[in-house]
Design a protein around this nucleic acid. Structure first.
Lengths: 344, 344
DNA sequence: TAAATTACTGAAAACGTTTTCATTTTATTG
DNA sequence: CAATAAAATGAAAACGTTTTCAGTAATTTA
């Protein structure tokens, strides 16, 4: 029965015909263009509703070169920080009448490159990217940038100057705060497990760590500073390496929460009492850190603020174009906060 | 300097001109249509690459009525189960050359309705939905269904018959497994905190609970069966209600992990020893359940299998149309598994 | 070698909007 | 009330593809 009923997509022409008006006027009314009489506009809107009209984005986008769609590339949506940022971005964009295409690179450079191509092909109005940890070359974004499509990097941003906008957390301050906190609670021999230095995140967090250590005139044992992929396994490996020696650390700053959690588990299994024998702090305020016992101190990155700022900057870019070179000159920095818990 | 360089989007016509061919042939070559000479095709592909050509999705979609884009509406991407499902879906769709527009309803019906409209407007080729807990009326999806766009519901599916495809976890079995497990480990007075019965999820999980109780001839104290929004606060409230009486439960089946975690915290704070005085089990295998101590038993829902099945069914639908009414008759059911941990 | 297939390519219309430019209607002014 | 300005509408082209239909080139068959 359902078959013979033709799908019957109502177009702008159907409205025009029903109202004896030209398609041009219908289009104007629907976009509430100023030059259309109030009464006509109301008639049109009413008829549009009645016919169940819905603008065809393809046609609209093709003609106007505006898709009202923003692309987003992120390593993984299941990472707590990103999930929160995305949620904020999406809800916020929705209010501005924009859609969001969310893509995951799985932290793979090749995937990121492919996705950039696809999103260009979809002619997104703008692109938001938290790039891969391996991404050091950004030429796959050139096409977007050259076509005048605003590109905003957040969290993981290019190290070299690049013609785009950057929004990042205050990772240096985060590293500094975390380390200072460990020192204040009595830490002297402070270890640090961090990510590869190809990423600004870990460069900055580590720099903050070094700064704090230096400021308090504490020596850094370079055997206790790790730059590795921040996996569960690597964290345990690093821990066992550190705790086999005669001298062991009395505090640990882990550059993310996954590592902190893994390290804490290692400590518990090996009779290292936290925080008495080992003070610990992580990074990101993953929900798990407040649930594990002892609860883990960590650094709050305020993903909601990051998301809000991204959309704010983006809307400005879309409205006013990115002529404002000065604005792009330096990154927007979102503050971080220390969260003290039982592990330190 | 960058300004005067015209963005220069290369189109199919540019390739045609460069090769002295017609746009029709170019189009065919790029879609590797059978009727184009091998050599010509190679020439075209080479030139396309050279010119940095990228198909304009808008134009293509407008003409062909195929967007190669699938819409997804989900309550929240930050819910572990959904995040995993989405990741699988996206990676899998990507292999098939499809894009995914992910939208969050924030578990709000009005938002879900808006999103359905928007995705219709974007002319997605198909729609995947995990609906809101409040969604009992599905008319906002009618437009899609009537237009012949495949709609697949997963996890939270319509209770009434509806002209779409369903993929769900085996919630009945999950409830049954969880409860049986509590009984086997010695539980006799088993409480159950569940969600509102407007959702199939909680209807089924609760039915499984009742079945197991009945089968073991254990009485159900209806004061210990809660149907409420599964928030942290509500869980604590329910717990305090149950544990103020003279007779208290010796086991608890929580219909999700958030509730189980909140209940476990309540227990720890109030000196109720888990599992000795209270055996517990949750639902979903949220990463937090393995980290909390004692670690929580729970039900694994295999989000990856759910995601895989969704794409498999979807591809079939897109290739063969959904003529196959029989296929849609009953839901696809994904198995669940019991995960035993220290809480039971 | 002519006739009949088959393989390949091209011309042109179509998809549903938006937008420029022209035209008509309405309001304002002297 | 005519003259002018302003407001509202319409005609038609354009956006970049895909696709139908027709036509030409290459191949096979009789």
């Amino acid at each position: 029965m359902n078959k013979d009923k033709k799908p019957q997509e109502n177009t702008i022409l159907d409205i025009a015909e029903a109202l004896k008006l030209s398609p041009a006027t219908i289009s104007r009314a629907l976009n509430n263009h100023p030059h259309v009489k109030e009464k006509t506009k109301n008639d049109i809107l009413k008829m549009a509703a009645q016919l169940g009209y819905r603008r065809n984005q393809m046609a609209s986008g093709l003609r106007s070169n505006k898709t009202h769609t923003v692309g987003l590339i992120v390593p993984r949506i299941s990472m707590f920080f990103h999930a929160e940022v995305i949620t904020t971005i999406q809800n916020s964009l929705h209010k501005h009448g924009y859609n969001l295409i969310i893509c995951q690179s799985n932290d793979l450079l090749t995937m990121e490159q492919e996705l950039a191509e696809i999103l260009y092909s979809s002619r997104v109005d703008a692109l938001i990217v938290a790039c891969t940890l391996q991404t050091t070359d950004f030429s796959h974004f050139n096409r977007l940038v050259d076509s005048g499509i605003p590109v905003i990097f957040y969290d993981r941003v290019p190290l070299d100057p690049y013609n785009a906008t950057f929004i990042k957390g205050d990772d240096f301050r985060g590293g500094y705060l975390a380390t200072s906190h460990l020192i204040e609670t009595g830490g002297k021999r402070i270890a640090h497990i961090s990510g590869k230095l190809t990423s600004n995140l870990y460069q900055d967090r580590t720099a903050g760590y070094r700064k704090a250590m230096e400021q308090h005139q504490l020596p850094i044992n370079e055997d206790w500073v790790f730059h590795q992929e921040l996996t569960h396994e690597n964290a345990r490996e690093a821990m066992s390496r550190m705790f086999e020696g005669p001298v062991v650390p009395d505090a640990l700053f882990a550059a993310n929460d996954v590592t902190a959690i893994a390290a804490l588990e290692f400590a518990k299994e090996n009779g290292i009492v936290v925080p008495d024998a080992l003070k610990m702090i992580g990074y990101s305020n993953d929900p798990r850190t407040s649930i594990i016992s002892p609860s883990l101190s960590t650094i709050e990155q305020h993903p909601d603020l990051v998301g809000k700022k991204i959309v704010e900057v983006l809307m400005d870019l879309l409205k006013n174009g990115h002529e404002n070179a000065e604005v792009k000159a330096k990154p927007y920095v979102i503050p971080v906060d220390l969260i003290r818990r039982m592990s330190s």
